[in-house]
Simulated scan of single mutants.
Amino acid sequence: MKTFITRTITALFFVAIMLGGMLYNEYTFFLLFFLINFFALKEYFKLVRLIDPEYNEISPWHKYGVLVAGCAIMMAFSGPNFSFGELSIGEIGWVTAFIFILVLPLGEILMSKNFTLKFIGYSLLGLLYVTVPLGLLVDIRVGHQAGSLMESISFGLYGVLIPLLLIFFIWINDTMAYIVGSLIGRTPFFPSISPKKTIEGTVGGMVLAIAAAGIYGYFWGNDLLYWPHWIALATIAAIFGSAGDLLESRLKRMAGVKDSGKIMPGHGGFLDRFDSLLVAAPFAWIYVLLFVFK
């Protein structure tokens, strides 16, 4: 009972922070995902150190420099929107990221006791796995500027709605997969990675999430976003979100841990909460760029 109460309180607090940060304005949206990126990166590097203990031998310059690079890349994705005088956060981010990504390998060669290219690879993979997807969400929110007032209103609405829908569809897919799997799940999906997942639950969650998105989008959401986009985003969330969940489960199994972190009691860490989003976001960004922001 105590565990249930803890999980419930944590979940409500988490939802309130997410909705507040995403909906209040573009500044809070950026700050929210900037912080998520920072803590998720730290959890990723912790998993890598458990998977390959040799990664503990990287120099302090490398250890902290890659976190700075990740934060700088997030700043770069904000574009020209947040300015201080003649400089924007985006411009500062691009310059800082460029410098650190170029200098990090040199610093590792000079300062590391046991230099190997795989250390650079682990760090770059972390930036690709965590920072770039979250940066693309920021780009959807603030990266599209339009000329006329009506276009600005339209793009502003899409910038808020699309990331929100993507997260919501991931949640529906996970919830429906759990319910269907509990009721009729019999066939293991990837037993070596996630023993509790079943094919019936995974497929059922996808179908119900896509169906719910299509029905709601067609009858009630079409004025906000053309209803086929609801189906497309739900499909992306269901397929690639499930892949993201399996990917993080694989990393945790290799590291020998149950959760990526303990910052959210009863719910694990940042990677545990956003693993599906990290894989789904790039595909959503591509779809939005090709079919929505055109």
Rank of each mutant, 00 (worst) to 15 (best):
L128S: 05
E54M: 13
F34A: 10
S152P: 00
D223E: 04
I99G: 00
K196W: 09
V138S: 04
G21C: 10
V15R: 09
S260P: 06
D275L: 00
P53G: 06
A232S: 07
M22G: 07
A213T: 08
I153W: 05
A243D: 00
Q145Y: 09
G159L: 12
L106C: 04
Y218E: 05
S152G: 07
G107M: 01
I179T: 09
L136A: 04
G65P: 03
P80I: 09
A281G: 03
Y226W: 07
F33N: 04
I36S: 02
L134I: 11
F190A: 10
Y178T: 08
I5G: 00
G269H: 09
P195V: 11
I179V: 13
G85C: 08
G79L: 12
H229P: 02
L102V: 10
G85N: 10
L67Y: 12
V138H: 14
L127H: 11
K113I: 12
L134R: 13
M1L: 10
G241W: 05
Y287F: 01
L102A: 04
I236L: 06
G181F: 14
K294F: 05
G121A: 09
R49H: 05
H62S: 15
S152R: 14
W171D: 00
A255H: 12
P195S: 11
V257D: 01
W285P: 00
L104V: 09
S242N: 09
Y122H: 10
A76S: 13
I263P: 00
S260E: 07
I17P: 05
A243C: 12
G256I: 06
A11D: 06
A281C: 01
L127W: 09
F119K: 15
Y158V: 05
W220H: 07
N56Q: 14
I167P: 06
A238G: 02
E86L: 15
T198D: 09
M111H: 11
L149P: 00
Q145C: 00
Y27S: 04
G135M: 15
Y216E: 00
A280S: 08
T131N: 11
R253V: 00
Y122A: 08
F39L: 14
F29T: 06
N114Q: 13
H62V: 07
F219D: 02
T131A: 14
N56F: 11
G204D: 10
W220E: 01
I140M: 12
L161I: 08
F291R: 03
D139M: 12
V288F: 05
I215D: 01
V180R: 11
R186W: 08
I58Q: 09
A212M: 08
E91S: 15
Y226E: 02
K196S: 00
V257A: 01
V288C: 03
N222E: 10
F39G: 04
Y226K: 12
Y24D: 01
C71R: 15
G269T: 05
Y226L: 12
I236H: 04
L271I: 00
G261R: 10
F115G: 07
I36T: 11
V203Q: 02
F33R: 12
D174I: 11
W227F: 11
S249G: 07
A40D: 08
A212I: 11
G85A: 13
L12K: 02
I162W: 02
P188S: 11
F14V: 08
L289K: 11
G65W: 02
F189G: 03
Q145D: 00
F155E: 01
M264C: 02
I162L: 07
